[in-house]
Design a protein around this nucleic acid. Structure first.
Length: 752
DNA sequence: GTGCCTCGAGTTCC
DNA sequence: CTCGAGGCAC
């Protein structure tokens, strides 16, 4: 990187100066924005100063630039605190997992089915070791490293550019690069470097790292890049994000391109023509694992053809065209010292194993999830035995592993070592937090506290959800602060609305806050500003933040897109209430009828019973159509509809929601403005498709903004009919809906 | 009615 | 990351 001292603007042509000038201007603008709006500077003080000096020097030396300067009067260097955020141009996905050869075979089968390939048609892969480090995305513009971001939640990561620049494996400049090039790969630390680092730290009486991965993660997240520079980090490139032009036509060739550009790619990367070759390569890498000199946790397989990758596309969080074949997890034996119950946001009672601390895969584990009461007894959800049907008792020796190398779980129990004083665990029938009855619904795996918002555990967890990253994401108000405010007698936050009245609740808020340890004017005002920043909020985030059972991130987005406005949603859900109740009554009547019929040995008269139950509720047309409109949304069914309806009808919850609404302005969702010719159209596929498989046709249509439905109705815009189309085609004809064959459809979406 | 595929919920440790 | 369950296609 250019140092402030050796920067000489007079050596530049005006064009070069302008390019640099514009880049600096943008960097400074973003840094200022990040500092003021997020209280999280994108760059360090030193870097900010250096940029500002260069910027000023350019403006002083080139008159045309001085006229354009917008950043000369902005404030000085931001205080160092945390990292800025970078939103990835293309989401950083995670990978699906295969835990044995069978999973790999299924993966290959699934791909062939999706692509419509026979069992013997060629389908080549690349296979490479999965490095156990942390992923990093590097963005180059015109060959210059612009920024580096961690994976974060896949959508937004942390800006660690200054640190990435200190890593020798990461080129600062690339010759002959595409105008836009995002390189993705793994930052890691070798075994020898890790040991040397720990020895050095130990000698200086400093902290040592538990494993190379933590050392790499800790080193990359240093606020001072000079500390990162002293840490021996390395980087393997394995993928890419946004590109202004394709790198190659295959995965393998694209990696070769990256190597030519100066990146390290893993030497064990191999092109495999067949499934047995993949497995053989996996075995080979597994054998070499101990001698590689760095940690790997499996082998990644990717479809080699980039055209096929594009056809396969993505599921919600993973690409369809890749999978990670994991090595068997490390196991460790320890004693189960006790079982505690945690109460979740929805009231779920979850048992957690308290373990005698034990090292598993380089990390000391002292807790493990036990899922639910059946799991302790040794049964899975289908009532089938797990662990050979062995139950888990307090005092037992249990075998622990970290599922996906993260979540500690119990794999086995050693009955031969069961001590005489081991105790059977009885699952509580009442909530340990509020003593309300905890019930387990028929067919449900979890027992839930019925206390609702009365239960402090549920109330706190709901608040934590409200401020969480995918909901309101209020800086400085995380889980810890929520706990503190919830339990604070002088300045309580009991409901979401309380957050927004915090500052103005009484004249003494600031004084009260400052009485607490660690709070001063600055931190209090930062918190108030962070809260104010979220008084205007995207509708989907508000809906998600309410924490209504079954309404997750996607459901909230679907609701927002359908209704576009909060009041419309509220009116619709209220209007649908009688129909929702009728629906539940019908479900209950149906269950009762089924049991009665089974006992009496006769056939259940389900339709009759349902109709009768619905009739007892005076469901008017308005209620019926509101309910049908709601549950007609793709992905929203009766369960979700009922849950929503119940939340709105519950006086406590409704009160909290209405109180909250008074403080907020909602932003309507951004309706995807795809300009494809089929955007916003509802399409139905029928008959045999010959060029695309059905799954592929659906995914492609959806990516172009079309809605794919299963049956023809008035709302259908286009019917794509292949050979063998039957009643659907007739119905479409009757309704006067546009009908095209597969080629007609492909022509329609061509070029989009 | 059955069998995918996704989404939601809950969880650990740094 | 995993499991359970909801929703939908076959």
């Amino acid at each position: 990187m250019t140092q402030p001292g050796d920067f000489d603007p007079t050596s530049l042509t005006l064009d070069d100066a302008r390019r640099l000038f514009e880049q600096l201007q943008e960097d400074l603008r973003l840094a200022d924005l990040a500092y003021h709006q997020n209280d999280a500077p994108e760059i360090s003080d030193a870097e900010y100063d250096a940029k500002k000096r260069q910027y000023r020097a350019l403006a002083d030396n080139f008159a045309p630039l001085a006229a354009e300067a917008t950043q000369l009067n902005s404030v000085g260097a931001p205080a160092a605190a945390g990292f800025g955020k970078i939103t990835h141009a293309i989401r950083m996905m995670s990978l699906g997992n295969a835990f044995d050869d069978g999973d790999v075979v299924d993966f290959d089968k699934g791909l062939r089915k999706y692509l419509g390939l026979g069992a013997t048609a060629p389908l080549a892969y690349t296979a490479e070791p999965k490095i156990d480090g942390l992923s990093l995305s590097l963005r180059y513009e015109n060959g210059i490293l612009k920024h580096a971001a961690t994976r974060g939640d896949g959508e937004t990561g942390e800006n660690v550019t200054a640190n990435a620049r200190t890593i020798a494996d990461i080129p600062q400049e690339i010759a002959n690069a595409p105008a836009v090039l995002e390189v993705r790969g793994e930052v890691y630390m070798s075994h020898s470097d890790f040991e040397a680092l720990n020895q050095r730290h130990a000698a200086q009486g400093g902290k040592t790292f538990a494993n190379p991965r933590n050392a790499a993660a800790g080193s990359l997240r240093q606020l001072d890049p000079e500390i990162t520079r002293a840490r021996p980090l390395r980087f393997f490139a394995y993928s890419w994000g946004e590109l202004s032009e394709a790198l190659a036509s295959t995965q393998f060739a694209a990696l070769q391109r990256l190597r030519d550009m100066g990146f390290q790619t893993n030497p064990l990367t191999q092109h495999c023509e067949t499934l047995p070759e993949l497995i053989a390569h996996y075995r080979k890498i597994e054998e070499q694992r101990a001698t590689l000199g760095y940690d790997i946790d499996g082998v990644v397989y990717k479809v080699d053809s980039l055209d096929l990758q594009a056809r396969l596309g993505f599921r919600s969080t993973t690409p369809r065209w890749a999978i990670a074949h994991k090595f068997p997890a490390e196991l460790a034996w320890t004693r189960l010292e006790g079982i505690d119950i945690q109460v979740g946001r929805t009231g779920a009672l979850s048992p957690v194993a308290r373990l005698h601390p034990v090292t598993v895969g380089g990390v000391v584990v002292s807790n493990a999830t036990l899922h639910n009461e059946d799991y302790i007894v040794g049964l899975d959800s289908k009532g089938e035995e797990i662990r050979g049907g062995k139950d888990i008792r307090i005092g037992d020796w249990v075998q622990v592993y970290r599922a996906g190398d993260v979540i500690p779980k119990i794999a086995d129990v050693d009955l031969s070592k069961r001590p005489d004083d081991s105790t059977l665990y009885t699952f509580p029938t009442h909530c340990p937090e509020c003593d309300s009855l905890a019930v387990r619904e028929e067919g449900d795996a979890v027992r839930r506290c019925t206390g609702g918002l009365i239960c402090p555990a549920q109330a706190v967890e709901k608040l934590k959800h409200f401020v969480s990253r995918k909901a309101f994401d209020i800086d400085g108000l995380g889980a810890k602060q929520i706990e503190m405010f919830y339990n604070d007698p002088t300045l309580p936050i009991k409901t979401p609305a309380d957050i927004f009245t915090l500052q103005t609740r009484d004249g003494a808020t600031l004084a009260r806050l400052k009485n607490r340890e660690g709070w001063g004017d600055t931190s209090a005002n930062n918190l108030f500003a962070a809260i104010d920043a979220k008084r205007t909020i995207p509708l989907a985030r508000l809906i998600f933040g309410l924490g209504i059972r079954h309404v997750g991130e996607v459901g909230a987005r679907d609701l927002a897109l359908h209704y576009l406005d909060w009041d419309v949603i509220a009116r619709a859900v209220d209007a649908a209430r009688p129909a929702a109740l009728a629906h539940r009554a019908a479900d209950e009547a149906e269950d009762a009828e089924r049991i009665a019929a089974a006992q009496a040995g006769r056939r259940a008269r389900i339709k009759e019973v349902r109709d009768k139950a619905i009739a007892t509720y005076a469901v008017d047309d308005q209620a019926r159509s509101a309910w049908e409109d709601l549950t007609g949304i793709d992905g929203i069914g009766a369960t979700l509809g009922l849950s929503l309806s119940d939340a709105f009808a519950n006086p406590d919850e409704r009160g909290a929601i209405d109180a909250l609404r008074a403080h907020l302005t909602t932003l309507p969702p951004e309706v995807p403005t795809q300009s494809s010719p089929v955007a916003g159209k509802t399409v139905v596929f029928t008959g045999t498709l010959e060029k695309l498989t059905r799954a592929e046709a659906k995914a492609r249509a959806e990516s172009l903004g079309a809605k794919v439905a299963g049956s023809v109705s008035k709302k259908t815009d286009i019917l794509v009919a292949g050979p063998g189309a039957g009643s659907k085609e007739q119905k479409a004809r009757d309704l006067g809906i546009q009908i095209v064959d597969e080629d007609g459809w492909l022509a329609m979406i061509e070029g989009a």
